[in-house]
Simulated scan of single mutants.
Amino acid sequence: MKHAPLLIAGAVWLSPAAAMAHPHIFAEARLEVVAGDDGTVSELRNVWRFDEMFSSSVVLDFDKNSNLKLDPDELAEVGQTVLESLEEFSYYTTITEDGKDVKVGKPDAINVDFQDGQLLMFFTLKPGQAMPLKGKLTFGVYDPTMYASMDFPADDNMVVVGDRFSACKHQVVRPDPDEVLAQNEGTLTDAFWNDPTGTDMSRLFATRLEVTC
């Protein structure tokens, strides 16, 4: 069985029973939330750098000419696979506007590179609706199945871009796992631990960018 397509393909990475409630893929991420001149959120710029083990498995499966590297056409195939596979999961991106979820549009492309033994992905998302800079807005990147761990190592890996944000306050929120568990122990059941894909509790633990305008 080919490993990389299986791993990348969202819901079919592994069965819930095999995945369990802990990650198997690790990526360092960067998110830039960009404000347009019209006073709305214009786009979200993403950069993902994957761990060396997963990156190596992708090379093994997409290196069609067996030259031990990913050529431009092979990188493009990886990007197209991810573009199609993660649409169901909104590209691991969650946006809220005053507590209500905002859908994200499909990116034009997932650009892929391979540097220093690690796979990198670059892509831009747009909110699925006009999103004025007012009220409380939140932006997060996480895998709801908990199979991939999307980590923001430093607060400056989650930033706002654009002069229109000057009238807003923003902060990176890193939930304390113990507090989350204590506040939600009534809803954390055996079903969650045995089938994490059946819930969205991982959202509570995810690092997020909060913007208040």
Rank of each mutant, 00 (worst) to 15 (best):
D176K: 14
F54A: 07
S15V: 09
E185R: 12
G79Q: 05
V112K: 04
Q129I: 14
L14V: 09
G99E: 08
V82C: 01
S55N: 05
L60H: 09
V211K: 00
V112Q: 04
V172Y: 02
E74Q: 08
S55K: 04
A18Q: 11
V159S: 01
V12S: 03
H3F: 12
Q183S: 14
F139K: 04
L7G: 06
A19T: 10
D108L: 10
F123Y: 12
K100C: 11
A182N: 04
R49A: 15
A11F: 10
Y142H: 07
F192N: 02
P132S: 04
P127E: 10
D101E: 07
L6W: 13
D73K: 12
T138Y: 02
T138G: 01
V173K: 03
C168D: 00
E87W: 09
L14D: 06
L60Y: 11
Q80I: 08
T94M: 13
N67I: 15
R174N: 05
R45W: 14
A76G: 05
A154F: 15
F26H: 09
L125Q: 03
K136R: 06
V47N: 07
P23Q: 07
P107C: 09
M150E: 03
S66Q: 13
S166W: 00
A21M: 11
S55D: 04
Q80M: 13
K169R: 10
L119G: 01
G135Q: 00
V34N: 02
